[in-house]
C-alpha cells in the first residue's frame, strides 16, 4: 500500500502556547484513521495543520507529505488546486462552512467546474447526482435552495456531497456529527461509510467521542495535551488499552448494556490547557499508576503489542487492563 498522507513530527506553536508537539501519522490509501482526544488535546489543530488552514499566527514545524509531495511547501495556487481536488474537509458546523448567501447548487458546482473542468450543464447534472447520492430527495429542485432551507443533518449531507464531489483521495472530517442528533449522526456516519468505501477514499475522522471513532475507523490515535499517547488498530485498543489515559476514557463512558458500577471510575483533574511542562509525562498528574520516573522523563512512543504503540513508561499489562 502507498501512503496518502505522511505526517512526521508535526509541531504547532501559537504565540503563547504549543498546541501540537511531535505528532506523526501515516494514512494509507483507502484507510480510515481516527483521532480522538478531549479539549486541548490538539486533535483539531492537527487536522487543520494538514489542510494548511491554520491562521498565520501559528508556527508549523515538522513534515507533512501528501502522496509524496511536501504540503508545507505548496504555494497559494498549488494549495487551491490541491484542496477540493485531492483533499477535502468536513467541519463540525455545516452552517459555517456553507456560504449562507449562495445557493447550494452554486456551491456544489463551483468545485466541479474548477477541479474537474466540467461545463455548466454537466456540472449541474453531476451536482444533482451527488445530492441524490447523499440521500437528499428532490435533488433537482433543492439545488436552488439556500443553506438555511436545509435542516442540520441535511446541511451536513450537502457538505459531504461537496467534499466528495471531486472524489478526493483523502477526506478529513473534524467532529462532523457533534452538532447533530444521535439518530441523524448515525445516518451521516452511514453515508460517510458508504461514500468512502465506494471510492476507496482515505478518511481521517477527528472526534471527542470514542464511540463514534471506534464505530468508523480501522486505526485510532489517542491524543492528550498535544501528543499522541496511544495508536493502533481500533479493536486492539478498545479491547485492551495500554495507556492509562485511554483506559480512563473508555471507563468514563457508561455502557448501554450489562451491569453498571455505582460510581464511574474516574481520573482526577481535567485536561491541561496551554503549556505542559516538557521532561515529564503530561498525564502524570492525573495518572493512578504514575511513579517517580513519569515525573522526570517524558515517555516516547514504543511498541506495547503486536500492532499497537503507546507513550507510557508503565503500559498496562494484559492483567491490569481488564
Amino acid at each position: 500500500m502507498t501512503a496518502i498522507l505522511e505526517v512526521d513530527d508535526l509541531t504547532v506553536d501559537f504565540s503563547r502556547t504549543t498546541a501540537v508537539r511531535g505528532v506523526s501519522l501515516r494514512v494509507e490509501a483507502g484507510e480510515r484513521v481516527g483521532i480522538v482526544g478531549e479539549s486541548g488535546s490538539g486533535k483539531s489543530v492537527t487536522a487543520q495543520a494538514v489542510m494548511r488552514l491554520l491562521p498565520p499566527t501559528a508556527t508549523v514545524g515538522g513534515r507533512i507529505r501528501f502522496a509524496g509531495q511536501d504540503v508545507l511547501g505548496f504555494d497559494p495556487a498549488r494549495l487551491a488546486a490541491w484542496r477540493g481536488a485531492d483533499i477535502a474537509m468536513v467541519f463540525q458546523d455545516p452552517m459555517s462552512s456553507l456560504n449562507p448567501l449562495l445557493r447550494v447548487g452554486t456551491q456544489l458546482t463551483e468545485g466541479l467546474r474548477r477541479h474537474r473542468g466540467l461545463g455548466k450543464a454537466a456540472a449541474r447534472a453531476e451536482a444533482v447526482r451527488l445530492l441524490r447520492t447523499v440521500g437528499i430527495d428532490d435533488a433537482e429542485r433543492r439545488l436552488d435552495d439556500y443553506p438555511h432551507a436545509f435542516s442540520g443533518g441535511m446541511r451536513q449531507r450537502v457538505c459531504i456531497a461537496i467534499a466528495a464531489a471531486c472524489t478526493p483521495k483523502l477526506i478529513i472530517a473534524d467532529e462532523p456529527t457533534t452538532a447533530l442528533d444521535v439518530t441523524v449522526q448515525a445516518q451521516v456516519l452511514d453515508l460517510l461509510d458508504e461514500l468512502t468505501e465506494r471510492h476507496d477514499t482515505a478518511t481521517v475522522l477527528v472526534s471527542h467521542d470514542l464511540g463514534v471513532i471506534s464505530s468508523f475507523c480501522d486505526r485510532i490515535m489517542v491524543m492528550y495535551a498535544g501528543q499522541v499517547v496511544e495508536a493502533g488498530p481500533t479493536d486492539d485498543i478498545v479491547a485492551a488499552p495500554a495507556h492509562p489515559y485511554t483506559r480512563a476514557l473508555l471507563d468514563s463512558i457508561p455502557r448501554l448494556d450489562g451491569d453498571l458500577p455505582r460510581r464511574l471510575p474516574t481520573v482526577p483533574g481535567s485536561p491541561p490547557f496551554g503549556n505542559v511542562p516538557t521532561g515529564s509525562c503530561a498525564f502524570a498528574d492525573r495518572c493512578p499508576h504514575a511513579q517517580d520516573r513519569c515525573r522526570t522523563e517524558a515517555p516516547t512512543m514504543a511498541p506495547v503489542g503486536p500492532n499497537t504503540t503507546a507513550a507510557c513508561h508503565f503500559p498496562l499489562t494484559e492483567g491490569a487492563r481488564t
Binding site: T17, S39, S44, Q92
Partner: peptide
C-alpha cells in the same frame, strides 16, 4: 462544541 484554536 469543539474548542476554538485559542484554547488557552
Amino acid at each position: 462544541t469543539a474548542p476554538p484554536i485559542a484554547e488557552a
